[in-house]
């Protein structure tokens, strides 16, 4: 999941470097991806709270990751009209402190859910449909898992 989810997030073309798991642990790439998904909801005021220069400071990373996670969950509830229930939320402490790839994968899964349900979902879904079948399959499974945990 984490490998395919990374491939997917790379298609967003965010400014921040996005090549390794380490690149994503600061939360900045994910915040920028959310902003691409919905610039009105994830506005400049929101993203200004995500600290850009975290270096190796895992406490700052965790702080950013918490904001991204809350943002994605609130977006699901307030804009997409769906409550994600019974889904094992990513452990941001493990991502920030230990660069845990599996937990990062779950975080990216939530962002994937935002992308394929937002106003601009056509663009994101069509991009996925142009990826390799093996990647599409993993993405499909990830979305299906999320959908099974959603309640309106």
């Amino acid at each position: 999941l984490e490998s395919c989810a990374m491939r997917h997030i790379q298609t967003f073309g965010v400014e921040a470097p996005c090549k390794t798991v380490e690149d994503l642990t600061s939360g900045i790439v994910m915040a920028q991806a959310l902003q691409k998904i919905d610039l009105v909801y994830f506005n400049d005021a929101w993203i200004s709270r995500v600290k850009p220069e975290v270096g190796d400071n895992w406490r700052l990373k965790i702080s950013n990751l918490k904001k991204v996670l809350k943002g994605a969950l609130d977006y699901n509830q307030e804009i997409l009209g769906q409550h994600i229930d019974d889904f094992t939320l990513p452990d941001v402490n493990l991502i920030g402190e230990h660069s845990d790839a599996a937990e990062l994968g779950r975080m990216l899964q939530l962002i994937l859910g935002c992308a394929v349900n937002c106003e601009q979902k056509q663009e994101y879904i069509q991009t996925i449909m142009m990826m390799e079948e093996s990647v599409q399959h993993v993405v499909m499974t990830a979305i299906q898992e999320l959908m099974s945990k959603e309640t309106p």
Binding site: E78, L80, G81, N117, I125, I128, E133, Q136, Q144
Partner: peptide, 30 residues
């Protein structure tokens, strides 16, 4: 060729799924 058939079936499953996502209505009411 069974491999080609399986590949085509898989493609169909993927296309159906993503097309269904495209036509799914989302958004909070009101």
């Amino acid at each position: 060729d069974p491999n080609m058939k399986a590949g085509a079936a898989n493609e169909g499953v993927l296309a159906n799924f993503f097309n269904s996502l495209l036509s799914k209505k989302t958004g909070a009411p009101g």
